[in-house]
Amino acid sequence: MNERLKGIIENIGLPRLLIASFLLLLFIIAPFVGVRVDTSINDVIARFAMNGILVLSLFPMIKSGCGLNFGLQLGVIAGLLGAVISLEMKVTGFAGFVLAIIISIVFAIIFGYLYGLLLNKVKGEEMVVATYVGFSAVSFMSIMWLLLPFKNPDMIWAYGGEGLRTTISTEGYWHHILNDFLSFQIGSHITIPTGALLFFALLCLIVWAFFRTKAGTAMEAVGSNPDYARSCGIDVDRVRIQSVIFSTIIAALGILVYQQSFGFIQLYNAPLMMAFPAIAAILLGGASVTKVKMWNVLLGALLFQGILTMTPSVINNLIKSDMSETIRIIISNGMIVYALTRRMKVRS
């Protein structure tokens, strides 16, 4: 009995179990401290739709054995470029969003290819190199946001300043373009962002389908056992680059969906730390450095966003102090540290 219990805990993973019960507990005590459960659920759903794609973007790279994408910011930058260029062209509404997507994908392919080349050269040290590539890309783009010749007055500083603003509103362009698509209400406080959820689902479907094609099968094999793949005549390095490009594209789309929901394009240092929450979420969902399944993405995004939504409201009401940020830091980074210390198969 005890053995079985241990087995179950081992299977789900202790941290996951703890955090899931913590979240459950938060929901239970929420009404008692004056936090409405329905608004909380509404927030969780909105944030799930908003952040889920960024979590999904980690999927291809874990599958191909490239590990956790600590350089997620490259995809984010591609998305930002798509967004600001689309705004610069003053294309509004759905067309503007599609244009942003197309431009982002072009940048994501270029960035992903170069990033993939680099990661192949530094096999074994991918994660630490990726982290700093991500950081330096963000800070490099900070310079670029200042220097690039954007003209749209909605985006540049109104007076005196130089370059693009730190936050640019998507209002009037494609604000909530996906969230409001087919959205409906449940009760008075729950609004379902149907379009964003559908888009997320569509991307999940595309990723799922990709791993059922020849190329996807090869990618999964490279991740499972690169030596096996090589002995089957697969160009392991090429497949890894493909996975990096794929991840980067999804991350770019992810940030676009984030922006349309959030209402702002955040430039400069905003994307600096974006990789960590996404990574923490997928790990929370049950993925490891080497293994991932689709449900890890969904569960992870839901749990993580649940914690992020619930801790500020409930904990703050409970102990009258704002510990949510600290709890977020401890949970998300603790999750990553935990995953990094799990023993994994040693591969050459």
């Binding site: 020849k214 099968t217 090869a218 999964e220 094999a221 499972s224 056992n225 030596d227 096996y228 002995s231 089957c232 005549g233 697969i234 293994k291």
Partner: peptide, 25 residues
Amino acid sequence: EDRRGIGLLLDQPLNWNIAFTAMQV
């Protein structure tokens, strides 16, 4: 000779293991 290291995808089902090379090549 390295069955577990090179020969197989240990964490994948048999049908994959058998068909993979033929599929890819």
